[in-house]
């Protein structure tokens, strides 16, 4: 099955990004496909490479980058939501790209399921 994933909350404050990551990783392990993850609302804050969490904690953005590199996942950050929150190409972690909401709608049209992680 092809899953599209929508992440609506930022890292660390809220579990949404962690749960989305674990869901995506597990779905892939079980033989499903996760071609794209879309980041909206404060979810765009998951895409910054400037975050430096303590060594003994997970690094949320780096974890997404690694998963994307291993499995060819398209990590898309909404441009309008990103501009509001100071996220631009200069701060993006590897594997993330900035694009429009059309990329979210496409997931709903093309994939078997669209799963939302948010508040």
């Amino acid at each position: 099955m092809q899953f599209g994933i929508l992440v609506n909350e930022g890292p660390y404050t809220h579990q949404a990004s962690d749960t989305a990551y674990l869901f995506a990783r597990t779905a892939i392990e079980k033989g499903h496909k996760v071609p794209r993850v879309f980041f909206y609302h404060d979810g765009v804050n998951n895409s910054t490479r400037l975050a430096t969490p303590p060594q003994d904690d997970r690094n949320v953005s780096a974890r997404w980058s690694n998963l994307a590199e291993e499995h060819g996942i398209d990590l898309v950050v909404c441009v309008a939501a990103a501009q509001r929150r100071g996220i631009n190409d200069d701060v993006l972690a590897p594997g993330f790209r900035i694009s429009g909401l059309g990329q979210l709608v496409e997931m709903g049209i093309q994939y078997d399921r669209l799963v939302t992680f948010g508040d």
């Binding site: 309008a80 059309g102 979210l104």
Partner: peptide
């Protein structure tokens, strides 16, 4: 109280633009 309604409307309009 939160941004969800405002940013949610944007998604609604784009989805309509995709003729859904």
């Amino acid at each position: 109280g939160t941004v969800y309604a405002l940013e949610g409307l944007e998604v609604v309009l784009i989805t309509a633009a995709f003729d859904q």
